[in-house]
Amino acid sequence: VESSMIYFGWSVRVMGFLVMPLLGFSRFAIQARLPPRKTSFFIAHAFKEVRFLMIVAAGFCCFIGMFTPLFFIPSYAVSRGIDATFASYLLAIVNAASTFGRIIPGVLADRFGKLNMFAIGGLFTGVIGLCMNTATSTASLVVYSIAFGFSSDTIISGASAAFSICTDDPRNLGTYMGRGVTGSGVRVLDTHSERLWAVCKYNSQPCHSRWQSVGQVGTNMEQEIDVVGW
């Protein structure tokens, strides 16, 4: 968003307004193939299944490094001398590539195995994430954004497909996916380490303590957003 009239708050609201009609349409256009189950909403025995817990743990580990480049690709591009306006478009490139990353691996999972595609997505995302510092030009950053967008969303589609092997009853699939993604997504709530890295970068101070004030972290993150032009 280049205009200074729209900030973070209204950016989130606009995204919500875009999603609402789409979800509203799907609510009335999609009909369940099977009747709902009569059992309890909460499936307690899911947390006793080793296969389910292992997939949740794998997703948790993948999320550790998956979201870090998404936060810092624009500011990293600016630090490499890229125009701030173009740097802000790199996230759009990541999201455009992620569209194919959610569709194609899901199709391939039916042929090569759901867990295999999930593992491949996690492996490639980790390798590509480590290559971020090698992208120093506009062309290389665009290629990096496309590669990371595709591979990172392979984790999302791969995890969803992997949870489907945990139950033989299709009516339980939504519950397994909801519990699994919630358990894996707990890692996303802990962004303190990424924000602490931003404080170190912009203050040029050694971060020997994790107990820095949240206000200081927020101030530096706002400065980062201002640099990129969001």
Rank of each mutant, 00 (worst) to 15 (best):
S75N: 13
Y76C: 06
Y76V: 04
A77Y: 05
A77K: 07
A77C: 12
V78M: 10
V78P: 09
S79R: 08
G81D: 07
G81I: 07
I82V: 14
D83C: 08
A84R: 14
A84Q: 09
T85V: 15
T85M: 04
T85A: 13
F86H: 11
A87D: 03
A87Y: 03
S88D: 05
S88Y: 08
Y89G: 02
Y89S: 06
Y89D: 07
L90S: 00
L91F: 04
L91M: 14
A92C: 03
A92G: 15
I93W: 05
I93R: 08
V94L: 11
V94H: 02
N95M: 14
A96L: 15
A97H: 12
S98F: 12
S98V: 10
T99V: 15
T99D: 00
G101Y: 11
R102E: 06
I103F: 12
I104L: 13
I104V: 15
P105R: 06
G106C: 11
V107C: 06
V107Q: 09
V107K: 13
L108D: 00
L108F: 12
A109Q: 03
A109F: 01
A109C: 09
A109R: 07
D110M: 04
D110F: 01
R111T: 12
F112L: 15
F112D: 02
G113V: 07
K114Q: 13
M117A: 07
F118S: 08
A119I: 12
A119F: 02
I120D: 03
I120Q: 02
G121N: 13
G122Y: 05
L123T: 15
L123W: 04
L123R: 01
G126T: 02
G126W: 01
V127P: 01
V127A: 11
V127K: 02
I128G: 09
G129A: 09
L130D: 06
L130A: 11
L130K: 11
M132C: 11
N133F: 14
N133E: 14
T134A: 14
T134K: 11
T136R: 09
S137M: 06
T138H: 04
A139H: 03
A139D: 14
S140K: 02
V142E: 10
V142T: 05
V142K: 14
V143G: 04
Y144N: 14
Y144R: 03
A147I: 15
F148Q: 11
G149Q: 09
F150W: 08
S152R: 04
S152F: 05
D153F: 15
D153C: 13
I155W: 05
I155M: 07
I155A: 07
I155L: 14
I156Q: 07
I156E: 08
S157L: 10
S157N: 13
G158K: 08
A159C: 13
A159D: 02
A159T: 15
S160F: 03
S160Q: 09
A162N: 05
A162R: 12
F163Y: 13
C166G: 01
C166N: 11
D168A: 10
P170M: 03
P170Q: 09
R171V: 10
N172R: 10
N172L: 09
L173V: 14
L173A: 11
G174V: 07
Y176G: 04
Y176V: 02
G178W: 02
G178I: 10
R179A: 12
V181R: 01
V181K: 00
T182C: 12
T182N: 03
T182V: 05
G183L: 10
G185A: 04
R187Q: 13
R187V: 15
R187L: 10
V188N: 11
V188I: 13
V188G: 00
L189P: 09
